[in-house]
């Protein structure tokens, strides 16, 4: 779904339409912080958490729509606020359940996801069934984000960058080796709690850009591609952010030119990059292996 008529090239359209500039700027900010958070999520083997939280956010959105549209509670200006609250509540439930099922920590995800999906379905049906708002929540509507949303997103980005900058070393130790972190006297529980809250906030905010169903892809796919070619931790994060930004720019551009859904295009470009990386890496590794074998053969002769 695209609200643009592509009469002018993408670059010129950026100068012409403020909403397109907002979209690009929001996408770039999002593209910068999601893989940064995603890297720590992937290392801690919590890739599924973003998906779980986004489904729980959807419950918040649906409840919001129900309150606004059906009950007429107009003081709730934007259901997105309820998505943020729901996402944080979801994160708290996950943390509680992770402590409760100590040896089966991942069990918390399907429980919270089911609850989120069930509540969403219930309140969507109560507020009159499927409509454009729901479609936008599911698949994103980056072209309709305004300056208010951009301000919230920028503040969140600054918060995330500051936290990562100040606690970088501790985050690295906790993510790679939790027991070592405890031994060094780091308050692991407190760190995990705060990072889950931040994750919840970013996930719920990402909904406006790529939607509930595609949020986790923004966070995980660039990292999945980067970790196959990164030489160091910092280098991997840098590559992940680069891939992510490329997919935002490429995705928006393509969606403008082809008049197709922006959120979905961004994710597809992301996946395309991942495929290219996997294929090139595969070819490179094979070549390296055959070179080694040839050398060994020569050596044996």
């Amino acid at each position: 779904m695209n609200v643009l008529a592509q009469s002018v090239p993408f670059i010129l359209a950026l100068f012409e339409h403020s909403f397109l500039r907002y979209a690009l700027l929001t996408g770039l900010i999002m593209g910068g912080i999601t893989p940064l958070i995603g890297a720590f999520v992937v290392i801690r083997r919590l890739s599924f958490i973003a998906d779980t939280l986004s489904h729980f956010s959807l419950a918040g959105l649906s409840i919001g729509l129900f309150l606004i549209n059906t009950l007429g509670y107009t003081f709730i200006s934007d259901p997105l606020y309820l998505a943020i609250i729901a996402s944080i509540i979801g994160a708290l439930i996950i943390e509680i359940l992770r402590g409760y099922y100590e040896n089966y920590k991942e069990i918390s995800m399907p429980i919270v996801m089911s609850l989120g999906t069930a509540l969403s379905a219930l309140f969507i049906s109560l507020s009159g069934g499927f409509n454009t708002s729901i479609y936008n929540f599911l698949f994103g509507s980056i072209l309709t984000v305004g300056d208010k949303y951009l301000a919230v997103m920028s503040t969140t980005a600054i918060l995330v960058l500051a936290l990562v900058f100040f606690y970088y070393r501790k985050l690295v130790i906790i993510s790679f080796d939790e027991s070592h972190a405890r031994l060094l006297g780091i308050k692991v529980g407190r760190f995990q709690f705060v990072s889950t809250l931040i994750l919840a906030l970013v996930v719920s905010l990402s909904i406006a850009t790529v939607g509930v169903l595609l949020v986790s892809s923004l966070m995980i796919i660039p990292v999945a591609a980067a970790m196959k070619i990164g030489k160091s931790f910092k280098n991997t994060i840098f590559i992940a952010v680069l891939f992510s930004e490329l997919s935002v720019i490429g995705g928006l551009w393509l969606s403008y030119d082809l008049n197709i859904a922006s959120g979905a295009t961004i994710v597809l470009v992301n996946i395309f990059i991942l495929f290219v990386v996997v294929i090139i890496k595969h070819i490179y590794t094979n070549q390296l292996r055959s070179k080694r074998t040839t050398k060994e053969d020569v050596g044996n002769v």
Partner: peptide, 18 residues
């Protein structure tokens, strides 16, 4: 306990533990 698959250099491991 260590997560091995994600890229990280020897220096990065050592420096993060100081």
């Amino acid at each position: 306990d260590f997560n091995y698959e994600f890229p990280i250099t020897v220096n990065e491991i050592i420096h993060s533990s100081i």
